Computed example of a mutant assay.
Amino acid sequence: MYVPAHFAPDDDAVRELLLRHGAADLITATERGLVATVLPFVHDPVAGTLRGHLARNNEQWRLPVVGEGLVVVRGPDAYVSPSWYASKAEHGRVVPTWNYVTAHVYGAVEFHDDPAWVGRVVRELTDKHEAGRAEPWSVEDAPAGFVEGQLRAVVGVEVRISRVEAKFKLSQNRSAADVDGVVAGLTGVGDVASAAAVERARR
């Protein structure tokens, strides 16, 4: 990934993205070519892994992986209009762009066809995404027999992280007045997450 110095995040920002991201793209190279699946992951910073699960009927887990896998993790992203820049009125030399937060996570991929392993990951994912709700749902809220049937329909996946390349392109190369305009513009179109990301990037 091409990462200019002003778009390179610090380790804490990358760690936060990996801990709190939504769904990500698991991409593996196989003898049949590239295969990709969108799925949520749990990041374990101690073990240095991403863990998730995919449908048993998904052929990706049955195809031997050639080399390392790639997980593309994303944060907020948004179109940035040049009309939001203060510099548009000053000299007009502005163009549209796209702001985004992403991390490319590389590592060895292992699939787990083990109900106990998958059960642990399902509970981790559930706890992660139910945390903070007034009445969080738990796997134990569903009948045991139903849960067992659901677990038989999925297999686990684990990516042992070898390296992470991240880029937080959030108007860091613009003047303070232009950044003010971007925050106001994003807020005006209702993209609060992207506006907040731009604000965090300039601190």
Rank of each mutant, 00 (worst) to 15 (best):
A116N: 12
D180C: 09
S171E: 11
V71E: 08
M1C: 06
G107L: 09
A86H: 14
A177C: 05
Y2L: 10
E110W: 02
P82Y: 07
A5F: 03
S138I: 00
A47H: 01
F111K: 11
G181L: 01
S81Y: 10
R152L: 13
V72C: 03
E16V: 02
D11K: 14
A197Q: 11
R20F: 05
V183L: 07
D12I: 13
D141A: 08
L50Q: 05
V65A: 04
V109D: 09
P76T: 05
V121P: 05
G132A: 10
L54C: 10
F41T: 07
A131K: 14
K128A: 13
V192F: 01
V189W: 05
P64A: 07
V94K: 04
A197H: 08
V198G: 11
T49D: 13
V122K: 11
V73Q: 10
G107N: 10
W117S: 09
V192S: 02
L50Y: 01
G48E: 04
R152F: 02
K128L: 15
V72W: 00
G92I: 00
D180S: 15
G119A: 09
L125W: 01
N173Q: 14
A23V: 15
E148I: 03
V192Q: 12
T102L: 14
A166W: 07
A8P: 02
V179C: 07
V157N: 10
H43F: 12
W61A: 11
D10S: 06
A184E: 14
H6Y: 04
G107M: 07
E31N: 12
T97K: 09
M1N: 11
V182P: 00
S83Q: 12
T28M: 03
V3C: 09
A195W: 09
S87H: 01
A116D: 15
K128R: 15
E124C: 04
V80S: 10
Q150E: 13
A29N: 10
R93A: 11
D10P: 07
T97M: 08
V66D: 13
A103F: 05
V182F: 01
A116V: 15
D180T: 13
W61R: 14
A8C: 06
A8K: 15
G185W: 04
Q60T: 09
D44E: 13
N58F: 01
D77V: 06
T30M: 05
T126G: 05
G119Y: 07
G188I: 08
V46P: 03
A29P: 02
S194C: 04
T187A: 11
L151N: 00
D25C: 08
G48F: 01
A134N: 08
R20P: 02
T126D: 04
A36N: 13
T97A: 12
N58C: 01
G149I: 11
Y79T: 08
A201R: 12
E148M: 03
S171Q: 09
R202L: 06
R203D: 07
L151A: 00
V192T: 14
Y106S: 00
V147E: 03
R15Q: 12
D191Q: 11
R163P: 04
G185N: 10
T97F: 07
A184K: 13
L17W: 02
I161N: 03
E59K: 09
E31Y: 03
A134D: 14
G52K: 10
Y79D: 06
A89Y: 03
V14H: 08
L19R: 15
A131H: 15
H53W: 07
V189H: 08
V122M: 07
A197W: 05
P40S: 12
A86D: 13
P45C: 01
V155A: 01
V155N: 00
